[in-house]
Structures are given as structure tokens and as C-alpha cells.
């Protein structure tokens, strides 16, 4: 399968906001995500995960290395890379439907086609009946569904997700993880999902990229050999094909965390 997202020798430095000291955030990171693959980036906090995502999204210029989407070098932000942020970044003054259709509006898609596509994604993320509500009328989980639908509806080549479920409660989080898995299968999207939660990474990812603490380096890659269709929390917890790589990832991440404390 061809790789949709290719990162090669990516390094990033920036001056600290307060001290002015040079921060080495990413160190020669190379990875690739194949067409339709769900990849998860997991690592301790401060390992440069969010920096990586911002560079991939084009929101942050990188100092060294290359980032290619569909064979094209990434400059600034663009609609080929959709982003779902940690805090739902939907617009409070737009209804659910108008938020979801925003990407299409920007692309200049005609109204009738837009409405049809919006409805499709409203249904896909389970927001039917809430099309005309404003974000402040929605729960945290629903806001994040809306943000997810907005990104999907714009039909990006690669979808980047930055700890999108970090701000919701544990129950909602489990539901959203299963929902995201279902939606990813249905849309066949190529996804790079960033998280510090090992269970989440192993549950969602075809492959997990484990990062070291700062300067963030790709430390290991772990494959999860459970078909995505079979990923349901209640079945998975006793499945060796899930628990073994999960434990392996946990061990790898812990090394980084405990090193830090010594």
C-alpha cells in the first residue's frame, strides 16, 4: 500500500517562551502512515507529540527534515490535512450543521450538495436531531463528535487527531473510542492519532509509534494484530492479541517516565 503521510528526518528546535533557551523538541523523526491506516503516536507528556502534530498540520514551520502528504511537501496548513484538536475547536456562533459544513463552504461546494454531505456525516457521528443546535447546547462528547464530523466532511487525505478525547469523562471516552473506530472503518480514512494514553493507542491503532521523552525520538513501533472490526472494549480486554502489545507499549512508555524521575 502506498504511504499517504511520510515524515523523514524531522527535527525541531524552538526558543523557550520564558527563558529563551533552545528547546530541542523533536529529534530526527522518521515515520510513514499508509493509505487507510490508523496510526497512534504515544509517549510521555512533553515528548513533542503536539509539536509533531502542529508541524504536520502546517501550523508550525519545521527547522529540519521533510513532511510529505500524497508525495507533496507540506508548506502551511491545507485542506489535505484535517485536524481534530484537543479542545473541540468548533465555532460557538454556528449551528452543528453549519460547523460541519464549514470545510465544504470554504471549498465552494454548492449548497444542495453541501447539505446532503453534511447530513451524511451528522448521521455518521450520531448527531441526528441536533443539526440546528448551537455548541453551548451540546455535551462535551457531542461537541467533539461535531468537531470530528467537520474534519471528516471536508474529506482530507490525512486526518490528524491531537488527544481529542482527553477532555471528556471516562465513560464518554470509551464510547467515543469505539465510535471513532467504527467511523474510521466506515470512511477508510488515513489517521494519525496522538495520545498519552496507552490503552487508547493500542485500542485504536493498527500501528503505534512510541516516542521517547524530550527530545522526542521515535523509540519503537508496535503493531496491533487485532482486526479493527473486532475492537470492542468488553471483548478486547481478555484478548492476547491486544493485551500483549498493549503491555509492551506500556513497558516502553514507562521506561521513559521512570527515567525522568531518577
Amino acid at each position: 500500500m502506498p504511504a499517504k503521510l511520510v515524515v523523514e528526518g524531522l527535527s525541531h528546535h524552538y526558543p523557550d517562551e520564558y527563558t529563551g533557551e533552545d528547546v530541542h523538541a523533536l529529534d530526527r523523526v522518521s515515520l510513514s502512515v499508509e493509505d487507510g491506516e490508523f496510526s497512534a503516536v504515544v509517549g510521555p507528556s512533553g515528548c513533542g507529540k503536539t509539536t509533531l502534530l502542529n508541524i504536520l498540520a502546517g501550523l508550525l514551520p519545521h527547522t529540519e527534515g521533510s513532511v510529505q502528504v500524497d508525495g507533496k511537501e507540506v508548506g502551511g496548513p491545507g485542506p489535505d490535512r484535517g485536524v481534530v484538536f484537543q479542545e473541540h475547536a468548533i465555532l460557538p456562533w454556528r449551528t452543528v450543521a453549519r460547523n460541519i459544513g464549514h470545510g465544504l463552504e470554504i471549498q465552494g461546494v454548492a449548497r444542495s450538495e453541501r447539505e446532503q454531505r453534511v447530513q451524511e456525516f451528522v448521521d455518521l457521528v450520531g448527531l441526528s436531531g441536533f443539526e440546528d443546535r448551537y455548541p453551548h447546547e451540546l455535551s462535551g462528547g457531542m461537541k467533539q463528535r461535531c468537531a470530528l464530523a467537520r474534519t471528516l466532511c471536508a474529506n482530507p487525505v490525512v486526518m490528524l487527531m491531537d488527544e481529542p478525547f482527553a477532555a471528556v469523562d471516562a465513560q464518554t471516552r470509551i464510547t467515543l473510542q469505539e465510535e471513532l473506530n467504527r467511523i474510521a472503518i466506515a470512511t477508510k480514512k488515513t489517521i494519525l492519532f496522538i495520545t498519552h494514553n496507552v490503552d487508547e493507542a493500542a485500542f485504536l491503532g493498527d500501528r503505534c509509534f512510541i516516542f521517547s521523552r524530550r527530545p522526542g525520538k521515535l523509540k519503537a513501533t508496535v503493531k496491533i494484530n487485532v482486526p479493527r472490526e473486532k475492537r470492542i472494549w468488553k471483548d478486547l480486554l481478555s484478548e492476547k492479541a491486544y493485551t500483549d502489545p498493549r503491555d509492551e507499549i506500556l513497558r516502553l512508555v514507562r521506561e521513559e517516565v521512570f527515567d525522568d524521575e531518577e
Binding site: 498540520a57 502551511g76 496548513p77 491545507g78 485542506p79 484538536f85 475547536a89 468548533i90 467537520r150
Partner: peptide, 19 residues
């Protein structure tokens, strides 16, 4: 974050001002 969200949707500067 709202500005960034629109930039990643491919919005122009004018669009960001307006929306």
C-alpha cells in the same frame, strides 16, 4: 485555536476575518 481550526480547513485570510 478557532483561527487554527479554520486554517486547517483551508480558509483564506478574508474567510477567517469574516467567519
Amino acid at each position: 485555536i478557532l483561527v487554527n481550526a479554520l486554517r486547517t480547513l483551508g480558509a483564506s485570510r478574508l474567510r477567517i476575518v469574516k467567519d
